[in-house]
Structures are given as C-alpha cells and as structure tokens.
Write a protein that binds this DNA or RNA. Structure first.
Lengths: 301, 301
DNA sequence: TCATTACATAGATAGCTTTTATTTTTGATA
DNA sequence: TATCAAAAATAAAAGCTATCTATGTAATGA
C-alpha cells in the first residue's frame, strides 16, 4: 500500500474527466503512449479495465465510476494542502473550481461570476454542480465542491457563510393573457399557477402560503426556472420567484411583476464554504472573488 | 502545480511522524540518503527547511507544522480511496488507525480494543487522540480521526453512530474515611467532592445536579479520571462517574460504589464515524472490530 | 473499402531516483 | 575545549523505469 505511485491517481482523474488518453496526455504535457502505459499500470493496480473504448471516448467502468469521486476529492485536498504554503497566482492558475448552484443561481449570478473569474484567472476552470440542498454540508465537508450558493442558511460545524444579496419573492405573469388590474389575493387564489419543484431550497414562499392557509391551483410543475419565460408568455399562469430573476425575465419577455398579495419575509442568498484555517490561498481567492463579483451587483428589494 | 511529485508527501508525513530521516527510510524500505534527497526536494518545493536537527530528532519548522495535518489527512483520504476498491486483509494491514477517546474511554475500553485489533491485525497501528468534544464533528469530516467514542450523540450530517454500551452515573468513595452508612442526599451535599473538568462530554451528572438545585462542594478539580483511585483512597472525597469505570476502580482499590441520591438518566456510549458510502474496507473493518470488541463486554447498568 | 482517429505495444533512451561510499554536522561526554 | 558517536548531507556511480519514437491495431465514418 505504501508503495503505490500516487501520481497515477492524477492520471486516473484526468482520464475520467477527459475521457481520452490523448487529451490526458496533452494536459499532462507528455506523449500519448506515456498515458497509455500509466493506464496499464492503473489497470493492474485496481485489477479492472477502468476505461473501455467506445464511440464517445474512454468510458469508465463501474469500478472506475466508484473510484472517481473519492479520488478526485482526495487529490483536491492534497493539492490544496500543498498549495496552502505556496503563493497563489490567479493569473497562472490552471486548476478547476467547483461551485454548487441552483439553476436560479446559474441564471442570476453565473454571468457576472464567469466574467470576473475569467478576468483574473483566464486559465482556471469553473465547474457548476447542480445543488442538492440536502447534500450541501456533506459536499462541503468532503471537498466535493469548493463553495456553494443557496438561500437556506447552512448550520453545520465549520461552515463559513457570507451573505451575497437579499431578495424577496414576487409574482410574474403575462398581463395580456392574465387580464388587467392588480393582483389581489382573490385573483391569486383563483388563478392557475406554475411551481418549480426544487430540491434547491426555494420553498420559502410555498411554506408561507401553507401557513396562511392559501390553497393555489398548481397547473404545471417543472424542475427548473429557466423555461419559465416561455411558459408564462404562452399562458395565463402565475409564477412565484425571486425578484432578481423575475426582473431579468421581464427584459427578455413582455411579462409583468406583481407583489405577492400576502407577506413573505425576504431571504438572503449566501455563499457557503468550509471554514478550515488550512484552506488554501486559491480557495480563499475563489470565495473572495465570488463575494466581490456578486457583491458589486446593485441590491434589489 | 500539476507536476508535483505527490509521493514526496508520503515522505514528508513520515518524516514528521518519525522525526528521523533514517527511520523514515526504514519504513519506506529505502536507504537513508534516498530520504535525505527527497527531503531536499521537499525543501525546494516548499521553500523552507521544514525540519531542523535537534537532540530530539528532526524538529519540524513552523511551516512544516502547518503543513502536516492537512497533508496527513489528505493522504489518508487518498489511500482510503485507493484502498476502497481493493481487498482488505487485516492480517497484512500496516496502516495506522486514529481513534478519539476520552481518558475514561481509554481506561474502560482500550485494553479490550487493543487486544482485539492486535489479534486480527498485528501489524496495524492505533493512535489514540484525546477527545475534544467540540471538535468531534470537524475531526470526522476532515478525516483527522477514523472514529471516535463518546457519550454525547453527534448530530452532524453524514455521521454514523452505533451504541456500544449503556451506562449510568454512580458515586465512588472510600467508605472507611467517609464513614459508614448509605449515601443520603444530605450526606451527598454535605460531603466534599472531586470533579473531573472534562472537555470530553461527561457533564450529564453535573447538569442534572444543577437542574435539581443541588449545590455540592467541589474540593478538587482534576483533568483526568485516571488518578481518581489514588485520590479517593487517601481522602473522604466523593467522585461521580460512570459505573463501568467505578467498578473497575473498586478492583484495584478498596472503594465503595453508591447510587446517586437523585435520579440521573442513563446514557449511551457510542461509536461515531463518517458515514460515507465511499469509506474504505479498512475503515469498515476498523469500526466493525471496535463494535465487536466492545459489544462483547457484559452490559452493566 | 479506404481513410481517419485513437489506443495499445515494442524497443530504445534518457532522466532521475537510489545506492554505496564518504564527509559534515550536531550534540554529548570527558 | 577537545573528542566521540550518531545522524544527516553530499558525491559519484548505477540501475531502474517512465517516457519517447515508431509502429501496430481496432473502430468509425465517408
């Protein structure tokens, strides 16, 4: 066990991510046969083919799939640990950062974020992982993601938190189809609604409605926010969502924003990360960049 | 960054733990100059001397001290990940397991545990880390320890728990010096007590006393349970502690166990570990061994 | 069927780790 | 302070092994 060449694991992870011996070789600045030989050694080590050739590239076997997450996270931690005592240069950074986001977050924040990161660290990579709120703490603890953005405050041990922005829920609808006039409580209840089934933690408005005893007719349930503009444009449905997103939707479609006809407290969207003193400079830089990139945004609501 | 020889980190960790280039070489089955050369490369990599010669061996610099915990944990995770897909043989296992325990746990459980582990895995190493209850979850999440045993149930995400035994608090005293007769509430309050200042989570009895409004005179406060027999033997002090330990103390000293003169609920001593599916076979084996080793014990109380 | 693409294999090479041998350093002791 | 012992560092040589070039082979698509 103590004789295993740990450098092989780096090759494994790259093989998994690129799905190609050749591309892995390019990333490692070695020739293709070199990686092929490394793969042979990996296969002997794990007593499994690990990757088989298909038209889509090198497809991981079951064994490889099981190995990958743990190896990737462990390698990341190791690299973080090594890096922690060395200087960090965004300009020359080529590593990959992982950020968990709701699809709402993607729409509202990702453009700003990407611009910022690309300016400062043009060679760095950003991988957005769809947020599953119930795994949030686990992902942070295990290093699966470097940070995550959500509106539910995470309470677990050793998790740091920084509020990025405040928002509140509003209604969005196509006034033409819905009919003129303000959105009264009666009309809200009488209307047909579209709901987003979110494992993302956006259930605050629903909760409040339940508390107020407001029963609404949900005619459509979709898993993501992003198709809402099209859906609303072609129907008399009402969607309830954060103002930030609603506002951006009105820019692309002729939709109208209305206040909810009952009180829902505002909420905070916050960045969360593992608050260990030993986190690396790159990790710190990543979080700070996010905070600065999003923080610049004009507060709404 | 992607060119760093990860195998060097293994040498670093061993250097830190052995405090000796020569011993590290022995552990790695290479010669001393080989490790010396590796150290030279580490020094260049981290731009720090890392270890300086003293009478106690190679003493780590501040930089090395900062690096060590993160590197050790990351390496452990990596090795776990690699191991997870390979068979585990206790008989040939040479790795080191880390277990966080209270000193009470050490006394009550360690002998059984060590015997069991040594039988099945004679070459494995066990490192007992003094438990600091407030860092428990963090330690598990970060992989600082493989498991921990405590009586406070840990609630964090992704922590598995298995009750090892149930116990309850009793009083222990030297009847000769204390005076004959049962331990009434009046005598309990009138008596002088010895308390163990525990960061270990053994505060249940104290809490109950506070709730009952019982004020006792604490004449002695000590940080560990282990010296209690001697202290009690030479005094009329009363100690409040779990029955299991009290019972073992009566074997070595002529002390007497009394029920507490008020009700304190029993408590559970449980093993806790990180409940990730990806944990390695060795990790599973370690936890199962502990459960079997302790579970065999005759339940008391 | 042929061209193309990508991974595997063979044999040679070169680079780098390891080894043996030796020196230097450090701390202990007289 | 001088000397001795122990342990780390250095030097030079050796040996290993990962990498390279060249080539083979299998799958894909025009």
């Amino acid at each position: 066990m103590n004789q295993i060449d740990l450098n092989l694991m780096r090759t494994f992870v790259l093989l998994y991510e690129t799905g190609s011996v050749t591309h892995t070789a390019e990333r490692l600045y070695v020739t293709q046969p070199s990686v092929s030989y490394a793969l042979a050694r990996l296969r002997e080590l794990f007593e499994d083919r690990l990757f088989v050739r298909t038209r889509q590239g090198m497809e991981p076997t079951i064994a490889a799939r099981q190995l990958y997450p743990a190896l990737r996270d462990a390698l990341q931690q190791l690299q973080d640990a090594i890096e922690s005592s060395r200087d960090f240069e965004p300009a020359t950074c080529t590593r990959r950062f992982r950020l968990a986001l709701t699809d709402l977050g993607e729409m509202a924040l990702l453009p700003k974020l990407m611009r910022r990161l690309h300016e400062q660290a043009p060679q760095a990579e950003l991988e957005v992982v769809p947020l599953e709120i119930e795994h949030a703490e686990e992902w942070l603890a295990a290093g699966r993601v470097n940070a995550l953005i959500c509106s539910r405050p995470l309470t677990g041990a050793a998790i740091a938190r920084h509020v990025l922005l405040r928002d509140r829920y509003v209604c969005l609808l196509n006034q033409e189809r819905f009919g003129e006039g303000p959105l009264t409580r009666e009309r809200f209840i009488a209307a047909r609604h579209v709901a987003v089934t979110s494992s993302s933690g956006h259930g605050l408005a629903e909760e409040v409605m339940r508390q107020h005893g407001i029963q609404r007719k949900v005619s459509l349930e979709i898993p993501h926010f992003s198709v809402l503009p099209k859906v609303l444009h072609d129907s008399d449905l009402i969607a309830t969502m954060p103002l930030q997103v609603a506002a951006s939707f009105t820019e692309e479609s002729p939709l109208t924003i209305h206040e909810l006809p009952f009180h829902v407290p505002g909420f905070e969207v916050a960045l969360h990360w593992q608050a260990q003193a030993s986190r690396s400079p790159s990790q710190r830089w990543f979080c700070e960049s996010i905070i600065e990139a999003i923080g610049e945004r004009v507060r709404v609501g």
